[in-house]
Amino acid sequence: MTKYILKRIAYMILTLFIVATITFFLMKMMPGSPYTNEAKMTKTQLRIMNEQYGFNKPLWEQYVIYLAGLVHGDFGISFQYSNMPVSQLIGSRIGASAQLGLQAMIFGVFFGVIIGAIAAIKRNTWVDTTATVLSIIGKSVPNFVLAVLLQYYIALKLGWFPIAGWGTFSQTILPTIALGVGPLAETARFVRTSMVDTLTSDYIELATAKGLSLTQVIRKHALRNSMIPLVTLLGPYTVSLMTGSMVIENIFNIPGIGEQFVKSILTNDYPTIMGTTIVFSLGLVIVLLITDIVYSLIDPRIRLQGSDA
């Protein structure tokens, strides 16, 4: 187990290294200089700026400096907020994003499991049909459309929740729903399928043949077996939450890294773009590692490769 985790961590580092490299060279190919906003700079000013950011050095040297910085958690200096280190910028914003993401995940998985399980148990009834229709809609309506609608109708018209901003719990509710509906729909569909598979499996039949009641069969056998594979969705959910955060944070004016990322793209702030990309990837690979470990802990059939059988 330890051996496997170490191997996975080595792979993670390699992955992040490759991501960093590709991002670095992509950003170097970027058209336009980061100073286009300040078009009236003199040549001397430009030279001083270039020196300050190290752009006068040969490319490979810049690359090495960049990588060396990364090891110490140094992503360089943001162009957009002069003299603000990117790491500090991201650090000050990651909390809000993490909280929002976590809340959305919990919201989505919790209600998704309930809806999916009920749909499976009552399959081919109107309950199932309703759940299926709702999850198709939840899967299809883009989260940014939903966010705008929620913001207008629930916050502005009905006044139930604040329109935007970040700080109080009530401010987190609408963005959590907007962000969480996608994972909710996905979870409901997944749990329904997985639960139907389980309920029609031979071992559930044997459990019924033992004389257990439907509730006992579901509680003792079906639920656990159909929930375990849900863990594999953790990675895709993280991706979808990271993606969604970019636009949801924007709409609800939340100071998170998603909103920051979009801003830095629109202002050609490439140290921040690079830094955020690497942070997103780091988050994702960590989630994927956790997924593997959790899966092996809850499913007795999975024995991580590299560990003794």
């Binding site: 993670m12 992955t15 991501v19 991002t23 992509l26 950003m27 190919m29 970027m30 058209p31 993280t238 991706v239 990271m242 993606t243 970019m246 990322f261 793209i265 050609n268 490439y270 773009i273 990309t277 997103f280 990837s281 994702l284 690979v285 994927l288």
Partner: peptide, 14 residues
């Protein structure tokens, strides 16, 4: 291990 959309965005930036 990079969210798909981040790849897309990086490319769009370039």
């Amino acid at each position: 291990s990079v969210p798909n959309l981040v790849i897309v965005i990086l490319l769009l930036v370039v």
